[in-house]
Design a protein around this nucleic acid. Sequence first.
DNA 1: AGCCCGACGGGGAGCGCTCTCAGCGGGGGT
DNA 2: ACCCCCGCTGAGAGCGCTCCCCGTCGGGCT
Lengths: 351, 351
Amino acid sequence: MTESAPRPTLEAVAARAGVSRATVSRVVNGGDGVRRPLVERVRRAVEELGYVPNQAARSLVTRRHDAIAVVVAEPETRVFADPFFALQLRGISKELTAHDSQLVLLLTEGRADHARVGRYLAGGHVDGALVFSLHLEDPLPELVRRAGVPTVFGGRPGWGDGTGGAVYVDSDNRGGAREAVRHLVGLGRRRIAHITGALDQTSAVDRLDGFRDVMAGAAPELIAEGDFTPAGGERAMRRLLERCPDLDAVFAANDLSASGALRVLRALGRRVPEDVAVIGFDDMLPVAEQTDPPLTTIRQDIEEMGRLMARLLLRGLDRRGGTPDSGEASAAAEAPSGVVLPTTLVRRASA
Amino acid sequence: MTESAPRPTLEAVAARAGVSRATVSRVVNGGDGVRRPLVERVRRAVEELGYVPNQAARSLVTRRHDAIAVVVAEPETRVFADPFFALQLRGISKELTAHDSQLVLLLTEGRADHARVGRYLAGGHVDGALVFSLHLEDPLPELVRRAGVPTVFGGRPGWGDGTGGAVYVDSDNRGGAREAVRHLVGLGRRRIAHITGALDQTSAVDRLDGFRDVMAGAAPELIAEGDFTPAGGERAMRRLLERCPDLDAVFAANDLSASGALRVLRALGRRVPEDVAVIGFDDMLPVAEQTDPPLTTIRQDIEEMGRLMARLLLRGLDRRGGTPDSGEASAAAEAPSGVVLPTTLVRRASA
DNA sequence: AGCCCGACGGGGAGCGCTCTCAGCGGGGGT
DNA sequence: ACCCCCGCTGAGAGCGCTCCCCGTCGGGCT
């Protein structure tokens, strides 16, 4: 009822426990260097008064916020159509929770939002940032660099090997793609096609590279550009079938495209996997398990990616806290600048 | 480079512009009551110094945070397997952004997390909360009540009509269910079965009620309990077919269950929709469009739900701010205590 | 031209917390 | 038994901002 009752302050707790503010503060922050009975007394006072520290006041002096920003660039709706995002978020959330940090979510769509995000990050509201879904020429990396906020990227930012010393966590897209294609080869397939993802994202490029690694001399007509969506997969599959009616396998850049390809194949009377073997990427459960036939695919541990990103960032922050003058991009400095998570082949019925 | 350079303070801007702190503060907060030329001068100083207000200091005195918490109870992985969550989040995010508020995401799994969330909310870190995915006997509503934080729920909390005066936004689950079943009736179906959702959630109960509204005298064996998952849908469909081999239509509580049901029907040689018409609920795109045949379903505007929740909360907060002593549950007071969004039938091939 | 009123700008107090620094007391060493 | 040292506690000074209140200046009215 009396929710407008003023929140108890440190002062109030101190008064009740008969100690000084400083002592209460010590107890609240771990209790080191305070004698047992006093700790107990303070704890009881805290309990009785329902005291909760005022984070704003604390941040004001510590300059820490125990909060990190998760920035999701979302030019396309695609990001939301798959559980990817949710899974990473969950991994991140778990890690942050364990570290008593909060998760501030920043979704951006379009240019205007970028400015807003830049302002927010530069405003020193958070201790660090986790940035996702980078596209070619994305202004986000530059933005966070300028904001001077320790950052870990989800997925390899930049192109080529010049990752600009950024810290990132990525799946082994290239290796996974190789494994997928090798699996098809192992099945005796020879005319293997590839439906790419949106080629403005490194993940798509890497998977294409992996495909090429194995199919060194693949005819260019065996590669059709997709966009990670089912519809794109359908279109690409049609094109592929027109150009190479004799193809006997398809490696799709993700499960969603694969599902589109599957539909086209069935509509055109090709049996899967007998006539055409199909393999996807992601192991996005609700999709991969529901297709007909269930999809053989390359799994990546998405939740673990999120967790790892958070862990990397927090570790960097802690280190920075320890030696303040290691200053600057300490998170980016000595940490491995890129961590690549392994992928595994999941065999179902489609290949 | 010199990111460790101390952020400029109000004081610094004031010095540079040759005015007092108070004046800079006024300019930064809208500039009312400051003469034009001065405003310009201050603006320039802000620009030159790259000044960004320290939110912690500001919150400390204003007691506002321009941040709201989004609490997602996630006992099951299910929540993450569907884009529901992401879509609501996006709606919320858009609305908050327009209001210059931040989104703090709190994911909970299990009891321990509840305590943490309670502490966080009570800690006065945010101006309000948006709470989702309530289950029967969920401690969350009580938690936020005690924390004294203005809250809007996603989905009707509580059971029966005693919503406890809480503000919530929900889809018209019951009405949508009625529409689904009526559609089947309109198709000439008579033996219509229902696969329920997880009955510890109001949405599932409401959809069941809607089914009963139309099929008043439906034999109990035409109702099988599911859990909103494809696997649950499969199990329920099997049971249904055993008990009532002559059924000619199924209304599944969501698209995911429907997809499971579809698989069973196909496996057992029933043609859809010729032998058995199937209708789902949600219009969860990646699922509903990918099934074979594509699923006829009831659409709810999930993003709009999210947006509306945020709008309702912010409006309540603003009002509260205007008349401080309207105090307490002002958000809950005069606002419509529940807003129910309409649903629409989406006809595809399955019914 | 003088007076009063209103509006604008400045000074200062604190929001609640942390952290440094000094002081005090008790235990161990000699 | 005395002294020293260390470990614990308390006092106080801000962190950067907002906002209240008062002084001041300019404009309008008589």
